[in-house]
Structure formats: structure tokens, C-alpha cells
Design a protein around this nucleic acid. Sequence first.
DNA 1: AAATATCCTACTAAATACCTATGAATATAG
DNA 2: CTATATTCATAGGTATTTAGTAGGATATTT
Lengths: 157, 157
Amino acid sequence: MFQVPTKTQYAIRALVHLVQVKTASVASIAETERIPFKYLEAIFSQLKSAGLLSADRGRSGGYRLAREPELILMSDVVKATEGDIRPVECVDDASICTVAEGCLPRRFWLGLKRTVDAYLASVTLAEIAEPLSPRNRIEPSPQLNEISIAAKKEHHS
Amino acid sequence: MFQVPTKTQYAIRALVHLVQVKTASVASIAETERIPFKYLEAIFSQLKSAGLLSADRGRSGGYRLAREPELILMSDVVKATEGDIRPVECVDDASICTVAEGCLPRRFWLGLKRTVDAYLASVTLAEIAEPLSPRNRIEPSPQLNEISIAAKKEHHS
DNA sequence: AAATATCCTACTAAATACCTATGAATATAG
DNA sequence: CTATATTCATAGGTATTTAGTAGGATATTT
Ligand code: FES
Ligand code: FES
């Protein structure tokens, strides 16, 4: 359950890459991140439509972040690749449920939606792109903010 | 995204029904809850295998909860119908990722898994089956809001 | 014995996820 | 100006998962 589509995983990996290199072509990112080229092209098209990426065409063109990674929330990314979080249709439209009149599970789904939304909106692209500290290469701390504070600036190979 | 399969929605609706009527046949639940009979039969088979339901065959048989609804967590239900929460394969096995050596997004996925797990494990079937007060037929009860906040705080601890 | 349940195995249908193919439009380097 | 490298647009195709059906065997009560 809650399997995240590869599309979104690819999107995040590619965005992290762009944080580091500032600007790059789809082809180069696809190769270094081992993502199918044409698929990534389509994904970037979506991310651009969502206002997360800017592009330059032509010989020395490429993609770059449309704004600073501190201002890109993971909820923005997920929304761009997959649309709104909607555990069940009725969180948007209670009239769908056949027993909507007094439907009990609805509260539960709304709570789930809020929980996931809150988490996704609490993590920025910049935090994900922070280098890993030696301590948490295996077992990461659940709190990304603490990681980013504790993380050193050194690079790992 | 995070669309919950109808299988799980059906399971929860049916379980809530069983909280209220104590014991019932698949046919009767399927009819009153508007769930396809044969599908619900298969779902109940899974829930029984998971130890959430007990059954009696024969003329006046039927299904009933295997234990008190206060002791049935929503994480139990979801696990029974869909297996473990696993946003990406690498949360279980980091060796899958092509760049697992220093994979940055992995922390993020682990945090998501923790957040969802915590929420699902914080709500019992008994709570979902609580009757709705007139005020919160539309908006979710403060009770479940507090639950989602608690889940988030747990993640921040 | 008849009726009413769960239980079991297999199958189909629909939806989604994942990826590919083709090529036009655009900008740059030389 | 031309060759080349890039984004952009559209139209598919395959594999997997989800959702649901079909038919009957097995157990229990009346
Ligand atoms: S309104 Fe959503 S299951 Fe009833
Ligand atoms: S280890 Fe999961 S995306 Fe890299």
C-alpha cells in the first residue's frame, strides 16, 4: 500500500540532481540517474507545467529549477506528478458514498489525508538534497530538519 | 495519489457494520453496505486469515469480530488487505536503489512510511464506529484531528 | 433432506503504471 | 547557413495491478 509510483521517485531524484548541478539536459540526468530518457522527458514536461522547472531550448539549453530549492515543497512535487492526495473520492465529495448520510469511515480518511499532506508539505527539496552525514547513512533520523542542522558541508563520494 | 483501493474501503465499512450488529452473513452485509457479494466474500477470507474475523459455517452461521474493536487497529486492517506500507522498495532493502550508496531521498521515504504507519496504528476500529455527533457530520471530529496531530508530533520527536 | 452459510479455485475485465516512437520547434556553435 | 543539440508535442504499446465474476465444494442448522 502507498506504493509511490516510479514517476514520482524519478522526479525527486532528478530534482535533487538539479539542485547540485544547477542546470542540465534531460539526457545527461537520465544517464547519471539511470532513468529512462523518454520517460524523464515526459516527467520534466509535467514539472515544468507545474511551475517547478524552467527550460531553455536549443543547442546549449537544458532544465533548471524555477525557484530556490528551499521554496520547493515535496507536496508541490507530488502534486505535479500525481495530482491531489485523495485516499478515497469522498474526501472531496461526500455525495459519492452510498451511505454518505452518516458515513463513519470518512473522518478516518480525512485524517489520513491531513497527515500525509502535512508531512509532504513539511519537507523541502533543499532538505532532501542536503548531504548525508556519516551517522545517518544507514538508519536515518525521522526528522529531516535535525538532519539538515546536524549535517556537515563535506562531500561524500 | 495514495488512492486507497476499494478493497480496503470495503473492508473497513464491513468491519464497522460488524461492530454494530455483532454477527452477520456476507450476503446481508454486502446488501446493506452495497458491496459486491463475491468480492466481499474474498475480502472476509483475507481478514479471517489475518485473525481479525471469526466465522461459523452452516445455516445460522456468519462472521464476527475475532476480538474487541478497541483492539483492532487500522494498521491491522490495512496490513490484512494490502500488506506492508512501503512507499518505495528501498525502505526495506536499500540495495535495490541504483545509487543506494549515498541515496538522499531515502530518508524522505522512510519518514513518510513512519508517518503513515503512526497514523494508522493510532486509530482503532472502535473509534471509527463511534456514532457521529450532529455537529461533525460534515467536518471530521476533533478527536481524529488530534490523532493526526499526534502522529505528526510522534514523527517530530 | 433442504436450506443456508463459509470456503475454494479459477477466470475475466478494467484501470493504471510504465515506457517507447516519431518527429516538429527552437536555439546555438562553427 | 548548416549541422547539431536540445526542448516540446502527440500518439501509441506492454505489463502489472485492481476489481470483480463464476461455479461449485464443504460444513452446519433446521
Ligand atoms: S463517504 Fe466515504 S466511505 Fe462513506
Ligand atoms: S535507495 Fe531509494 S531511491 Fe535510492
